[in-house]
Design a protein around this nucleic acid. Structure first.
Lengths: 232, 232
DNA sequence: CCCAAAATATGAGATATCTCATATTATTGT
DNA sequence: ACAATAATATGAGATATCTCATATTTTGGG
């Protein structure tokens, strides 16, 4: 289990700080003590149950949030992408059960040391406003997912997931990850995928799937879009 | 559909402002332009799709957040209780599809006029920090509900719900509301409740249920508690 | 290059959950 | 007090989804 997270130094660090400046997210200079870190695929950025000493801001890459239940079942809760914060719960709350966060691709993030900045962060309007926006979006998305997840069969949620994660017209996600994320059994996921192929929505090519009828998938996915768009 | 929301004036208003002071939530005096409103059971505090002009802070009562899907199905997303904010999404984001919020009991709340305070609120550290805490808790709860909802059968979620909403050792929630909240059909909810009675966990008395074996319900509900408690 | 582990596949039977049909009570408005 | 509407109940058949068993293929490490 080598957890050899790499910290960029010198020129490389400087390059990231400049190219992906986060100074607009704070009203005070923060770069001096910020670490630039790279996590490799499958490395744990935060281990479940362990309080982190840093607030992270993701620059590039992709990670997954996991939680382990008492019965041993591990569940994928959400994805983390560029421009997301990690560890904000621990910054805000004294007690909080930390979830596990694992990089699913090479992930670069800024690590803001809390022992140094905690107080300043909690008094910084600019930072708090940004964080509040981030959290409100997160809360809304989770709320939507929740009601969607409970209200519709896999057929609809999978169609949506395929459209959201497709690489061009190819769907390439790993089944194991997906059935974890969508909370269904591997068997059933395959079953619905086969149906999609039989109906001609998808065509299996090797271990990937070619999207043949985007419109039909949209029809299925649209069922879980709520309400009207703002402005109507 | 009389929507005769009542606004307290004079002495009554003053009484609420003093007894449930919210001055600690802001670093500037806010009471001058705050309205104290009372919504009766089933009144809409915010109508779905309509942007509110106020930020609300609930003092007493209980409300429900609803969303309507394109297929016409209405889904209960969450409850709102005392000390919750309403309308924070609209304060933070220019575009946002507003969900419907309906009082499920007499509900008193403070209404902060945005046209007057919007700018000040977004620059107030104290307010933003409070709101951030509120939102982070909300986001976490939704995330937990989401993964729970997807991962466990109704038996477990219902046990948890019963324990959480029980009034002493009596469970009194309305079935219609519950099956909406838990995202299951009325038929199935009844089916599982009957099972609980047959197993002796509950005993039906009129339209309420007497909890007879808390331990057994806890055993079912504990399955969806994640991880270890902080500090272990 | 080989092995063990992970990921992919597929079948069959068991459950969980839904839909629809239909009655019987509350509740509410007038 | 009455009619309309909502909430509660219950049965029966249809689906969605799960569990388990088992086989094949891919992948990563030594």
């Amino acid at each position: 289990m080598g957890w050899m997270m790499e910290t960029y130094k010198g020129k490389k660090r400087q390059h990231y700080l400049e190219k992906h400046s986060i100074s607009h997210l704070f009203s005070f200079p923060i770069e001096e003590f910020v670490e630039v870190r790279e996590y490799k695929r499958d490395e744990w950025i935060i281990r479940e149950g362990m309080r982190p000493d840093y607030l992270y801001y993701v620059i590039e890459g992709k990670a997954k949030i996991y939680v382990t239940y008492q019965n041993g079942k591990v569940s994928l809760i959400n994805f983390i992408n560029a421009h997301d914060y990690i560890g904000e719960m621990e910054l805000l709350h004294e007690v909080y059960y930390t979830k596990g966060i694992q990089a699913s691709a090479k992930t670069v993030c800024f690590a803001v040391p809390l022992h140094h900045y905690r107080k300043k962060l909690l008094e910084d309007t600019t930072f708090l406003r940004e964080l509040t926006k981030f959290l409100s979006v997160k809360a809304t998305k989770m709320a939507e997912k929740y009601s969607q997840g409970l209200s519709f069969p896999l057929e609809n949620r999978l169609a949506d997931f395929i459209l959201q994660t497709a690489d061009g017209d190819m769907y390439k996600e790993k089944h194991v990850t997906v059935c974890d994320f969508l909370g269904v059994s591997y068997r059933h996921l395959l079953h619905v995928l086969v149906q999609f192929c039989e109906k001609g929505y998808l065509h299996k090519e090797g271990r990937h799937y070619h999207i043949r009828q985007t419109d039909e998938l949209h029809r299925l996915a649209d069922v879980l879009k709520n309400g009207l768009e703002p402005g109507s």
